[in-house]
Computed example of a mutant assay.
Amino acid sequence: MRQTTMAKPAEVERTWYVIDGEGQTLGRLATTAAHVLRGKNKPTFTPHVDCGDYVIIINADKVEMTGNKLNTEKYYNHSGYYGGLRVRSAKEMKEKYPVEWVRRAVQGMLPHTKLGDVQRRHVFVYAGNEHPHTAQQPVELKVKG
């Protein structure tokens, strides 16, 4: 009889991946990154253990959105004070805050738990083509679509 193998945190082997965001759609890029961050691309995936890999996203300023979403999509922040609501459009986020824009999309697809908090620390987003993680020898990951 076969038994289901559960990954233990000490046995997890982590790989570094780099995703080039140039010409990619935001949603496709974010789902691919979240899939790898959770570890669902591995046969040893265990839902309650952080068995995911590290993801570096470069060229965040060249990520696209389809349709009219750049004008209609809104991002909300609230400071906690009265009148502290800040509303920004996707177009403004892409132009002024491309790193936060991509990071929000990826982090929104991760679980909103303590495990998700750990997995959120494994994504690194950069607006340009350069990143400081060359010592980790990241492998290029292609996004489908």
Results as ranks from 00 to 15, higher is better:
residue 9 P to E: 09
residue 11 E to T: 15
residue 12 V to M: 05
residue 15 T to S: 14
residue 26 L to Y: 13
residue 28 R to Q: 13
residue 29 L to H: 00
residue 29 L to A: 11
residue 29 L to F: 03
residue 32 T to I: 05
residue 35 H to C: 14
residue 35 H to M: 15
residue 38 R to P: 03
residue 44 T to G: 05
residue 45 F to M: 02
residue 46 T to R: 04
residue 48 H to G: 02
residue 51 C to T: 04
residue 53 D to M: 06
residue 54 Y to H: 12
residue 54 Y to I: 05
residue 54 Y to V: 01
residue 56 I to V: 00
residue 59 N to M: 10
residue 61 D to K: 07
residue 61 D to F: 11
residue 61 D to W: 10
residue 62 K to Q: 13
residue 62 K to T: 04
residue 65 M to V: 13
residue 65 M to S: 01
residue 68 N to M: 03
residue 70 L to A: 12
residue 74 K to H: 08
residue 75 Y to I: 02
residue 76 Y to S: 00
residue 78 H to W: 09
residue 78 H to I: 00
residue 79 S to G: 03
residue 79 S to L: 09
residue 81 Y to T: 06
residue 82 Y to R: 10
residue 83 G to C: 00
residue 83 G to A: 08
residue 83 G to F: 05
residue 84 G to E: 06
residue 86 R to P: 02
residue 88 R to F: 03
residue 92 E to C: 03
residue 97 Y to A: 09
residue 97 Y to D: 13
residue 97 Y to E: 14
residue 99 V to I: 15
residue 99 V to H: 04
residue 100 E to K: 06
residue 101 W to V: 08
residue 102 V to D: 08
residue 106 V to A: 02
residue 112 H to L: 06
residue 114 K to G: 12
residue 119 Q to V: 02
residue 121 R to T: 14
residue 121 R to H: 12
residue 122 H to E: 13
residue 123 V to H: 06
residue 123 V to E: 08
residue 123 V to S: 01
residue 125 V to Y: 04
residue 125 V to G: 09
residue 128 G to N: 10
residue 131 H to L: 00
residue 133 H to G: 07
residue 133 H to F: 09
residue 135 A to L: 08
residue 142 K to Y: 12
